[in-house]
Amino acid sequence: MKNFGYTIQRDQSIDIDQNDRRIVNYLLSLEPSFNLCLGCGSCTGTCTAGHFVDFNIRRVHTLLRRGESKQLKTEMKKCMFCGKCQLVCPRGVNLRNLIITIQRAIEQIG
């Protein structure tokens, strides 16, 4: 192929039509409180891990809902399971179970 000195940019939008939403459906079946998030960011605000590394559980959660799970494996390893997120959540989302379930989903779906 020829090289003209510039490149073709790939479409960066979230394509819900193309994305794999199996993980989110799996999570919803095992942890229905996943549905209750209102995206307020309390969890990320208090997250122990998030204060030291680039880890945004609110963002990971939202990405998952859209079927964006590319960096999920490395992201999930950042969680320390302290449970503060669950304490502050105004909707009572069971975040620890959520993270465990996500890890299980990664193992199963790959």
């Binding site: 000195g5 510039y6 490149t7 073709i8």
Partner: peptide, 14 residues
């Protein structure tokens, strides 16, 4: 700007 030209091409491709 040649280095940006890919944006131009990518829009047409879309």
């Amino acid at each position: 700007v040649q280095a940006n030209r890919g944006y131009s091409l990518s829009c047409s491709k879309k």
